[in-house]
Design a protein around this nucleic acid. Structure first.
Lengths: 228, 228
DNA sequence: TAAATAGTGTCTCTAAGACACTATCAT
DNA sequence: ATGATAGTGTCTTAGAGACACTATTTA
């Protein structure tokens, strides 16, 4: 295609999990310029034979070794000067992992680590990655309402207290345990009891549940963040 | 940036309006190969100094002359072989116009025209534009629920029957006129009465309204597509 | 007058949230 | 027993939807 401008196409990944009741995001410290030494979201260029999603999965695998994370496209960022080296369009992705797997330092990164979202916002991010992070967090909070994505933060079996905690951490406010219990048990899709219990030291043991709908499948009856 | 693959980056626009109580989309007939003669969404390559959104607005302006449409990014499409000529990533956009402005044939297009979405689906579209169209329609239906986008289909002043018709056309089902009336009037953001009436032949004249929130601003209280 | 369209009243049903209560565990 | 956590009951309130009704116009 003659006379048409070309561009670099990258993928960046905002990968989240929960550690110590805090929402944490995977960041790398840039080992090369531009923004050398600054924090950034993991990412890289799309290879000739990859789809965008495959590229994002590969980048995340390179940093974490995780093979099948819940991952979906967020949106693309294409301000002309967002990368000072050359015109680069980034297709950002949102990923959710069930635990903060110890990250592996990748090619471009001096180091990779899980950091609390609030800390990362304070520290700042390279390129326009802070905007990407903000968009990703908002999308995540919103997807908790009407998809089954919350279970992606948890192990294969979990208690309703653990599930509720995901909502509380991401939404940043407490939910009524009783109402949450009733609401979740009433929805026939989403999760089902395994029939087993798990004792957690003191207190009545909790029923264990497993996901019915996985990943980002839509819920029949959403769990809405109320206006307040 | 040596040794990194480059790509063409295009924008495609799914531009909608309503004509004769039908949802119509702007399509062009391709004047050059590949898919010569087939229908496609209007689009083109992003220029070096444009943002993605600016490129989409430019493409739409070239086809319609419209300057300030409601327009937002939909998502990106990047299957390796989606364009047989060369690796091309398309950043699709969703636009809403208040009337089917007579289209101008652009550079790449033998002709441009507004066609009913159902017809276009039957006729088929070039590239992966049918997938883009489906995603755009679904996004549009969904945005009617929680944003003020419905007013973008209408003139500066409109009746509630006209506003309701937008919902009925996009959602493909009738809404109760009385409940719609009450719901819309109750929401303080969104629309406000101008104080004037418009007689439409027979029947009681309707109050005119104007938008308060424009474009894709979020509504305080969503107008939900019920499960049924 | 009748027909048509705009707009209101009102009833029912569902679901969310507050919060008291019961159940089952460890110590 | 006490404290802690899981889970249920129940009341209130808000909102959606169905649908009957009133209001205001043209023919």
């Amino acid at each position: 295609m003659p006379r048409h401008p070309v561009s670099y196409v990258a993928v960046d990944v905002a990968a989240f999990t929960i550690a110590d009741d805090e929402l944490v995001v995977l960041v790398v410290e840039r080992g090369v310029g531009p923004f050398r030494g600054a924090l950034a979201l993991p990412g890289g260029f799309v290879l000739p034979d990859e789809t965008l999603e495959e590229a994002a999965r590969r980048e995340l695998r390179e940093e974490t070794g995780v093979d099948e994370p819940v991952l979906e496209q967020l949106r693309s960022y294409g301000a002309p000067a967002r990368d000072p080296r050359a015109r680069t369009v980034s297709v950002a992705h949102l990923a959710v992992l069930s635990e903060p797997v110890s990250p592996v330092a990748g090619t471009d990164a001096a180091s990779a680590a899980w950091r609390a979202v609030a800390d990362v916002r304070r520290a700042g991010l390279a390129f326009d990655h802070e905007e990407i992070l903000d968009d990703a967090v908002e999308r995540l909070a919103s997807k908790l309402e009407y998809t089954a994505v919350a279970t992606a933060f948890l192990a294969e079996e979990f208690t309703l207290a653990e599930l509720r905690s995901v909502y509380e951490v991401v939404w940043g406010r407490p939910l009524d345990a009783g109402n949450f219990q009733r609401k979740v048990r009433a929805s026939l899709d989403w999760v089902e009891p395994t029939g087993e219990l798990r004792a957690a030291g003191r207190g009545r043991p909790a029923s264990l549940f497993r996901p019915v709908k996985s990943g980002t499948a839509a819920l029949d009856s959403p769990l809405v963040r109320s206006s307040w």
